[in-house]
Write a protein that binds this DNA or RNA. Structure first.
Length: 701
DNA sequence: GTCGTTTTTC
């Protein structure tokens, strides 16, 4: 059965050796160019050796004498593969327990077969396995080979075989099977790494992170490639958080893993995507000083992060640096910077950016135009926005539904909901069909301005055009009905959503919980919370904040605090919004001591007092007739760089009225105007009522 | 590049 034949193909043993590796970076291969091929497309590199499964051949390698006695051999694995497939194609079936017991009696044919493979050196088994693993359809056979080898004890280290299999399962999105397989023996660094890689590739970040820490507890270091894979998965997920990334970076440094170009780039991009451009820049500086260069995409991600956090000057500087290093920025880089200009700068900065783009021969894309439209809409220049739409057509970029939804959202946020009809008309004239996302914005706009009939008509139109509403559509509809007191309709829609096969998500439950809470229907609220959990939807920070808010507003402070504590115990970090809700609840009832106490807990939790929290604190003192302390909060704001707003001054005026100090109100109103705050209707009416009271007191005396 | 939906102040 064992065939010894002269070599058919002249190949280097090194190559053969390295393609057997489950992961090209486990060992640094001497020829790096080859290692890349071996990993990225195992089938192409191995096809030289296994044009079919008939055999495996290797030629002599001059430098390597360890295997020099076997390298001239050719092994024929086809009898084995035929034997294993004797009942038809081998499906991949894994059980949590090994079902293959050690053989008590053995079929003589099988025994003979096993005997014939006794002398095959391990690297050949690895190669065979690697070859079988390169195709999804032969994964079952690959597993059968490994089981068979174990049964006959033919290969002496199984961890490499297992890691090859785990790696292949991970690549074929068979994470569950990879886990089952890994349970068949104690995890070794090799199998750990394969499993972590499989989790990361399948975006199961939690499992990957868990395994990394388990591995550390077992005294092993994770392969640095896994850190790259995990960070990439985190970046893909868009849920990347700077604190988590910092922890990973600390681990990497602690393990003294050498940062390679890929890992450095992944880290920098991760920090950028998590909205932490400072750390991204810091790491960039460190990388550059050690001679590791950042990829263009990495630099663009930092530009984007800087622009998004309003640090346009630095974004611009980095953009310049990119250009001076000889790289011609492309549309994406321009867009990143443009986003910053639209956010912070005057309109003309955005405009000149686009014209410079055109001068440099970089063509604007859909995003460029939609950013420009955002800029014009924010500046209230509807005509200019329309011109951009025309330019898009001229520039061969078909305006799509997305551009119009941005346009509409801009109007909605500026209170100009009536423009919705104009936008719809414009779309029709250009011939752009509204899509689901656009309709969602339309429904939201009508809903926010209490045009519930229009919202429902839009919903019907959507259905008649064959567009299936999604979670956002339902959430928007349910919420706008709740917001305008139509709780029964909201509840009906919630039921209709489920009937139509759209599963409620955390946001849906949050909306309904808020609705029940507002109505003080505590039992219904608790029932819904229970249902939420039973459906596997985890309450998030917004859920808990909503609970704190509704309990607090109805004076159920103990319940509110229980929610806050429960959230902490679940491991979620209380947000400042949550403390604001609590402070506000105390404030509205004039419980200033409790409000101050909640404020203290908030700061001791490391949260910075926001304008909202401070305004609520002013309200707490005001409602408790402690006007001097209310003004002390104003002083605190001024000293700590928090700019008072209309609400601040209106609340202070209210505090003065509460203690009958009407004559002091006009002075506060004046200070408000002097500090640059525009008085709104509430502020004016507060002043008016103070003046009215003043007149009454004068008349009375 | 998945846009759009949920929580907090007078």
């Amino acid at each position: 059965m064992l065939l010894i034949q002269p070599p058919l193909v002249s190949s280097r043993f090194h190559s053969l050796y390295f393609i057997t590796r489950p992961h090209h970076r486990f060992f640094q291969p001497p020829i790096s160019a080859f290692s890349a091929t071996a990993s990225s497309s195992p089938s192409s590199s191995s096809s030289t050796y296994f044009s079919s499964w008939n055999g495996l051949e290797a030629s002599e390698e001059e430098d390597d004498d360890e295997f020099s006695t076997v390298v001239r051999r050719r092994y024929d694995f086809s009898p084995l593969l035929k034997f294993l497939s004797r009942f038809g194609p081998v499906e991949l079936v894994l059980d949590s327990v090994n079902t293959e017991p050690s053989p008590v009696t053995l079929d003589p044919v099988e025994f003979e077969l096993a005997e014939s493979y006794k002398a095959v050196p391990a690297p050949y088994w690895h190669s065979l396995l690697k070859s079988l693993c390169s195709s999804r359809s032969s994964l079952g056979l690959a597993y059968a080979v490994v089981s068979w080898l174990e049964k006959h004890n033919l290969c002496f280290s199984y961890e490499l075989l297992y890691s090859i299999l785990i790696h292949a399962l991970g690549r074929s999105e068979k994470l569950y099977e990879a886990f089952l397989l890994s349970q068949k023996q104690t995890l070794t660094p090799l199998t750990y790494n394969a499993l972590i890689g499989a989790c990361a590739r399948n975006n199961d970040i939690d499992k990957a992170l868990n395994l990394i820490s388990r591995m550390r507890r077992d005294g092993y270091q994770s392969d640095f490639v896994n850190y790259s894979l995990v960070i990439q998965a985190l970046t893909r997920s868009n849920k990347i958080d700077s604190a988590l990334l910092q922890n990973l970076y600390r681990e990497i440094k602690h393990d003294k893993l050498e940062l390679d170009v890929q890992l450095v780039n992944d880290l920098i991009m991760g920090f950028a995507k998590s909205g932490d451009p400072s750390r991204a820049l810091q790491l960039l500086g460190m990388a550059q000083s050690t001679g590791l260069s950042a990829k263009t995409a990495t630099l663009v991600s930092i530009i984007s992060a800087l622009a998004n956090s309003g640090r346009t000057v630095e974004a611009e500087a980095l953009f310049e640096e990119l250009r001076q290093s000889g790289i011609k920025p492309r549309t994406k880089a321009y867009n990143a910077l443009l986003r910053g200009y639209v956010k912070t700068g005057p309109l003309r900065d955005a405009e000149s950016m686009v014209s410079e783009m055109e001068k440099s021969g970089v063509s604007p894309d859909e995003h460029t135009y939609s950013l420009l439209i955002d800029a014009y809409v924010n500046a209230g220049r509807w005509e200019s926005a329309r011109i951009v739409l025309k330019e898009m057509e001229a520039g061969d970029v078909q305006p799509n539904s997305f551009v119009f939804s941005r346009l509409l959202a801009g109007y909605r946020d500026r209170g100009e909901w009536q423009k919705t009809f104009q936008v719809l008309k414009e779309m029709k004239s250009i011939g752009v069909k509204p899509d689901r996302q656009f309709y969602n914005v339309v429904i939201d706009t009508f809903g926010k301005f209490n045009c519930l009939d229009h919202a429902m008509t839009t919903f019907d139109r959507m259905l008649s055009e064959g567009i299936e509403p999604d979670r956002v559509t339902w959430n928007t509809l349910i919420d706008c009905h709740c917001k305008h007191g139509r709780h029964i309709v909201a509840q009906e829609m919630f039921e209709a959503m489920e009937k139509r096969g759209c599963l409620p998500c955390a946001t849906t439950y949050n909306i309904m919980i808020n609705s029940y809470g507002d109505q003080e229907r505590w039992d219904d609220m608790k029932r819904l919370l229970g249902k939420m959990k039973s459906q596997g939807v985890l309450p998030n920070v917004v859920t808990h904040t909503t609970l704190v808010d509704v309990y607090g507003k109805s004076g159920r402070f103990n319940d509110a605090i229980d929610c806050l504590e429960e959230m902490k115990s679940v491991g979620l970090k209380p947000s400042s919004t949550m403390y604001n809700a609590l402070i506000n609840a105390y404030a509205q009832r004039g419980l200033s001591e409790q409000a101050v106490n909640a404020f203290r807990v908030m700061t001791s939790d490391g949260l910075k007092p926001s304008l909202l929290a401070l305004n609520s604190l002013i309200n707490a003192f005001g409602e408790d007739r402690r006007d001097a302390e209310a003004f002390a909060v104003l002083q605190y704001m001024k000293e700590n760089g928090v700019n008072p707003d209309v609400v601040t001054y209106t609340t202070l005026m209210k505090a003065l009225i509460r203690v009958d100090k009407f004559q002091k109100v006009p002075g506060v109103y004046e200070e408000m105007i002097m500090s640059g705050c525009k008085p709104d209707r509430k502020a004016r009416s507060m002043l008016r009522s103070a003046l009215r009271y003043m007149k009454q007191t004068l008349r009375a005396s």
